[in-house]
Simulated scan of single mutants.
Amino acid sequence: MKYTFKLLFFSTMMVLCSACTDEYRLERKEDRLYGAWIFESAAFKENGDLFRENRDSEFVGDIIEFYRDYSASFDDRRDRIIYPGNWELILDRATFDGENDNEFFLDMDFFDRGRPVMTYLCGVNNLTWERMNLRANVRGGVYYFRLRRI
């Protein structure tokens, strides 16, 4: 009986420990990311500015699709071009004041005739099965994107 209890306790601890690994967290986020997303809003805040500038006309209606093989496509509705690309989800783990602070980043690259046309390293502020909020630091400021699954 004592041996059975130890075995059960050890098995339970292994399951709990493996459920909290970085790989498991990344897989869960990636599962939510797969599929097509449409831009609902876009804003840009220049370095030093107090307020965001609306950039909906540049992005709203564009569609980005993430595939399981880490490829992606960006459908630019305004230019009527579909850019192929790739993506990677990154977990950044930092410890401040004794507490773990995990942040997810989405690294995306899109190409036209083999040359990069769009490259974003976005902080993932929110990612659910239906909504996604991204923050992309670029030269000169920060983009804020809100997307919805289609």
Rank of each mutant, 00 (worst) to 15 (best):
Y24K: 14
F44H: 13
C17M: 11
N54I: 11
D101F: 04
D92K: 14
L26Q: 07
E23F: 04
R115G: 09
K29Y: 04
D92M: 08
F96N: 09
P84D: 01
S41R: 06
R25F: 03
Y83P: 08
D49F: 08
S71K: 05
L91R: 06
P84I: 02
G114Y: 08
G85K: 00
I63A: 07
V124L: 01
G61P: 14
E53T: 15
D31C: 04
G35W: 00
C20G: 05
Y83R: 12
G61F: 09
G48Q: 10
N54V: 12
F110G: 02
R77N: 14
E27P: 01
L91I: 05
R68W: 03
L127E: 02
Y24N: 10
Y70I: 01
I64T: 10
L33Q: 05
F105R: 13
A94L: 13
E88K: 11
N125S: 09
R113D: 15
A36Q: 15
A19P: 02
E88V: 02
I81H: 13
A42Y: 07
G35Q: 02
S71E: 02
V124A: 01
L33F: 03
G85A: 01
L89D: 00
C17I: 06
R80M: 12
W37H: 14
S71V: 01
D22A: 14
F66V: 00
E40T: 14
R77S: 15
G48I: 06
L50E: 15
F44C: 10
Y83S: 08
C17K: 05
C122D: 11
D75Y: 09
K45T: 08
F44G: 12
G48V: 08
V60E: 12
A36Y: 10
N100F: 05
T95N: 13
E27Q: 10
N125L: 13
A94C: 07
D31T: 07
E103Y: 06
